[in-house]
């Protein structure tokens, strides 16, 4: 089934500070990555979609206002995700099942499937206090997928995870995207590049871009070059991305203000940074 979230003119203000400003976008089945620096408004937008915050504008899911959407259709992994340390993994999942009003008869199967999915079935009797940070995060993902969820919102899901856990997370997400809208908010470009079909870039509460990875890469096409230390004085440099040693000499990967002839191949990160620095 095709699901759709339509956001029209979404704005949010905390007292005098405007955090979101006139955001318009449509999410359909698939994985969306929301990229933006800290303070861009990613978490606020997520919280508006979950209904945690009141807002100006409209958010509709499948034609219905988001506040009238049954709670069971939205799964959410917040940025700061915690659990009751006194309960076991299984008890905690039962707790979430009860909150999502999943019938008692179905709970066993639903929990088992979710724990299998995040590879935590062997830990089901372990107390939450004994789990590692990565395991808690995976459990958070599992709870977000519980029930008949049509939208999954994952706020900074890979924060604090080691590389192996991050790969596992990407695999889980990729496998679960069928018939669902998955929105992943992060400032780590690699995560988005690896598993998202679409990217939305935000900065200072505004939407800067929404489209496929390729479209974002196009922003930096022909503008990425590698310069030696002596060439860094050029006025055409927009942003110095990183530096590394090449043939024993320090080399810089640079985004230029205008296309150059001997440009290097650009990637999503280049496109993202190019977009941020130009706006």
């Amino acid at each position: 089934m095709e699901n759709q979230i339509e956001i029209k003119n979404l704005s949010k203000r905390f007292r005098q500070k405007r955090v979101l400003e006139g955001i318009n976008c449509i999410f359909k089945n698939g994985i969306y990555g929301i990229l933006g620096p800290n303070g861009a408004g990613k978490t606020t937008m997520m919280r508006c979609i979950t209904g945690l915050y009141s807002f100006q504008g409209t958010i509709e899911m499948n034609g219905k206002k988001i506040k009238k959407t049954p709670q069971t259709e939205i799964g959410y992994l917040p940025q700061k995700f915690g659990l009751f340390p006194e309960l076991t993994v299984w008890e905690m999942m039962t707790y979430f099942c009860n909150l999502k009003k999943i019938p008692k008869a179905d709970q066993y199967q639903v929990i088992e499937d979710a724990l299998h999915m995040v590879n935590l079935i062997s830990q089901k009797k372990t107390k939450i206090s004994k789990l590692s940070g990565g395991m808690v995060r995976r459990l958070g993902i599992a709870q977000a997928f519980l029930g008949n969820t049509k939208v999954i919102l994952l706020d900074e899901p890979t924060a604090g995870l080691d590389p192996e856990e991050r790969i596992r997370f990407k695999n889980i997400i990729s496998n679960m995207s069928k018939d669902r809208i998955i929105i992943v908010s992060t400032h780590i470009v690699e995560d988005v590049e690896a598993c998202c079909d679409h990217i939305m870039v935000m900065n200072r509460g505004k939407k800067l871009f929404m489209g496929t990875n390729e479209k974002l890469i196009e922003y930096a096409d022909g503008r990425i070059t590698e310069l030696k230390a002596g060439d860094l004085t050029q006025e055409d440099i927009l942003f110095v991305e990183k530096s590394y040693l090449q043939d024993g000499e320090k080399t810089y990967r640079v985004i230029m203000k205008h296309p150059v002839e001997a440009a290097a191949k650009s990637n999503v990160e280049d496109g993202y940074l190019c977009l941020l620095k130009e706006h």
């Binding site: 979950t50 209904g51 945690l52 709670q71 939205i74 959410y76 992994l77 917040p78 940025q79 700061k80 995700f81 915690g82 659990l83 009751f84 340390p85 909150l99 999502k100 958070g140 709870q143």
Partner: peptide, 17 residues
């Protein structure tokens, strides 16, 4: 306070309760 201390508020509040 255990809700606040263990940061479970947000994930529970999402369930609109």
């Amino acid at each position: 306070h255990s809700y606040c201390k263990n940061e479970v508020h947000e994930s529970l509040c999402t369930n609109r309760i």
